[in-house]
Amino acid sequence: MRIVVRTSRLAIWSRRLGSFSVVLLLLSIILHFSGQIAPDVFEISIGLASVFAALALLLAVLAFTVLWQTGDKGWGLALSGFIASSFALIPAGTAFALYLSYPSTLDVSTDIGNPPALALAHPDRPEHAVDPEALANRFPNLVSRSYQLPVEVMHNLVEALARNNGWTVLRNRAPTETGMIGTLNARRETLWGWSSEIAIRVAANPMGANVSIRAASLRDMWHDLGDNGRSLENALLALDDAVTLYVRDGLAILDDDDEEELPEALPEDHEAL
């Protein structure tokens, strides 16, 4: 009696769908970074690639089970489908992990009661509401700053911060003698095509200057995976470092001036009176 050994159709379709999902994913990324497709089209393409990859992964698991029981051919096909689908699911898996780890920060500010004014974004949307407790737990460094530096100096450091981060400045108002408040509004673009507006307010206080910062997404989204919150927290930490360097350099200049003003030593053969 001749035993017919067949190739598992589950394994065949697992490799086909897995390969298609990888091609769709890579093509979407290439077209996105070359500016050929809009961000929303890119997100739809990534979503479709993830759906095909999930189906391919399921078929691979089923193929492994069937092959173990029947002894048919297709282990290599099922394995290739499993590997390809796992690779194509990396973006979706990363997004899901960020969704579980971070609250939505579609409109977030260090000053909830009086946030800096926006120039482009539409504030106060109900779907943009952020839980203050969740925000404080996940972003402990996302708080307004108070520095013992003149408000003009702090505004210059804020301008440098915007340039160093590659933000597009939309509006920049330096503090004046009559109104010791400076504001800066900038547009921030993420690697994946998300856009948000950054608003920074620098206000004078008796000891120096207060800095408040805000970020609001420019697109209608249901969740930003904590992107705005991470961006603001990193910006504030970078501003802390900039202030530290400014103060250190200033102290170094003062030390050099003091050394130059020291009197010269008396000659060794100077006779006492």
Rank of each mutant, 00 (worst) to 15 (best):
R2Q: 15
S8N: 03
L10H: 10
I12D: 00
S14C: 00
F20K: 10
L26Y: 07
I29C: 09
F42V: 10
I44D: 15
V51F: 15
L55Q: 03
L57R: 05
V61Y: 08
G71E: 12
G74H: 01
G74L: 02
G76D: 11
S80C: 10
F82K: 01
I83F: 14
I83M: 13
F87N: 03
A88T: 05
L89H: 03
A92K: 06
G93H: 10
T94H: 12
T94N: 13
T94R: 14
F96R: 15
S101D: 13
S104A: 12
S104L: 02
T105I: 01
V108Q: 04
D111V: 03
G113Q: 15
P115A: 09
P115E: 09
P116H: 05
A121Q: 06
D124S: 15
R125D: 06
E127W: 09
A129N: 09
A136Q: 08
N137E: 15
P140L: 02
N141K: 10
S144V: 00
L149M: 08
E152W: 13
V158H: 00
E159R: 12
R163I: 13
N165S: 14
W167D: 07
V169F: 07
L170K: 01
I181K: 10
G182N: 04
L184D: 04
A186W: 09
R187M: 10
R188H: 09
G193P: 04
G193M: 01
S195E: 14
S196L: 09
G208K: 01
V211Q: 00
R214T: 08
S217G: 11
L218W: 07
L218I: 06
M221K: 10
M221N: 05
W222A: 13
H223A: 02
D224I: 04
D224S: 02
N228V: 01
N228P: 00
L232A: 03
E233Y: 02
A235N: 04
A238D: 09
D240K: 02
D240S: 02
G250Y: 03
L251G: 10
L254S: 15
E259M: 13
L266H: 06
P267N: 06
